[in-house]
């Protein structure tokens, strides 16, 4: 297993690490038993993501995937952040080893869950089927 230089760069110098107090949306996905938890905090003004931070418990590619995902949604309208796919995250990192692709899935889902939290807090209606639920993760047998 070998990580790309991009993955190593985001792992060595992760962007946007930390928390946002009184965030407008917070999303946490994963399970410590599986070895990965990602938490994304969003600051949203007029439907635009003005700040984003993350915390991750996980392997090198989990940290790199979260870091990359925060960069990709920073400054974007919420609706655009919702279209972020795990494939796009993995591609932006110049690929992930097959056994680590689930890390990019977690990054996508953490962003979506944070946006859903924002919608819930603000009474904004949304299509629930667009958002992940626990059963959608099958990367571990727990």
């Amino acid at each position: 297993m070998l990580y790309s230089e991009k993955v190593m760069d985001h792992f060595r110098n992760p962007r946007n690490v930390g928390i946002i107090e009184n965030a407008d949306g917070v999303g946490e996905v994963g399970n410590a038993k599986c070895g990965d938890i990602m938490k994304i905090y969003l600051k949203i003004e007029e439907d635009v993501i003005t700040d984003v931070k993350f915390e991750t418990f996980g392997c090198g590619s989990a940290i790199a995937s979260s870091s990359m995902a925060t960069e990709m949604i920073m400054g974007k309208p919420v609706s655009e952040a919702l279209t972020l796919s795990n494939k796009a995250v993995a591609e932006a990192l110049d690929g992930l080893p097959p056994v680590k692709m689930h890390c990019s899935v977690l990054a996508e889902e953490a962003v979506k869950v944070a946006v859903r939290d924002y919608y819930d807090k603000n009474g904004i209606e949304y299509d629930a089927s667009l958002f992940p639920n626990c059963e959608s993760c099958d990367h571990c047998s727990l």
Binding site: I37, M38, K39, E55, T56, F57
Partner: peptide, 8 residues
């Protein structure tokens, strides 16, 4: 630990 949500 400083970037781990579990630790927090």
């Amino acid at each position: 630990r400083n970037m781990s949500p579990v630790w927090r």
